[in-house]
């Protein structure tokens, strides 16, 4: 059984780069952050690329790194924001343009969720992973995935209702 080489890494990135970029964008919210996050995740995977089993798909491994990085970065930035801001940031006022666009509002509300809850929703509804697969990626139990997904969706629904109510939806 051979080892993964540099060439196979390039092939993987060319093949799965866009899908991973999209996942990264959903996990962290901003396009620029997504590229940096993906590069960092791929660099981590690249360090151990030669040791990965050539018979298995490396994507779950890379995705797991990506999700863990997104969660840890989000926590770090949250701490930094709390340190830098003398007073809590103003609550963003929902603009009428966003309010009428359900999907745009959904994405805004998705960004406001906690990093772990957001990761669960992205993995479940964007990557279409099963609850067991999501639990494996996040390193938690299936029960945790179920509860996080349920709470995340409930929060989205609640916020969506609040935002859409003035518009009669």
């Amino acid at each position: 059984m051979g080892r993964r080489n540099d060439e196979s890494f390039t092939e993987f990135v060319v093949e799965r780069g866009t899908a991973l970029t999209r996942t990264a964008a959903l996990l962290c919210g901003a396009r620029q952050d997504a590229e940096d996050l993906l590069q960092a995740a791929l660099e981590k995977a690249y360090r151990h690329w030669g040791r990965l089993d050539p018979e298995t798909d490396p994507e779950p491994y890379v995705r797991r790194i990506l999700v863990n990085l997104a969660i840890s970065r989000s926590r770090r930035w949250k701490v930094l924001r709390e340190i830098h801001m003398a007073r809590p940031p103003d609550e963003p006022v929902a603009s009428p343009v966003h309010a009428v666009e359900l999907r745009g509002t959904l994405m805004d509300e998705l960004r406001k969720l906690g990093p772990r809850q957001r990761a669960v929703l992205v993995l479940r509804f964007w990557e279409d992973l099963s609850e067991a697969e999501t639990a494996r990626v996040l390193g938690c139990s299936v029960g945790t995935v179920k509860s996080q997904a349920s709470r995340g969706l409930a929060r989205l629904r609640e916020r969506l209702d609040t935002n859409m109510a003035p518009l009669g939806r």
């Binding site: 999209r22 959903l26 997504a34 509804f125």
Partner: peptide, 18 residues
């Protein structure tokens, strides 16, 4: 909501590419 969320995610990332 789940379908809307899927649609929203697809729409949001449609232009993103590596």
């Amino acid at each position: 909501l789940e379908s809307e969320l899927r649609e929203a995610m697809a729409e949001h990332t449609a232009e993103a590419s590596a």
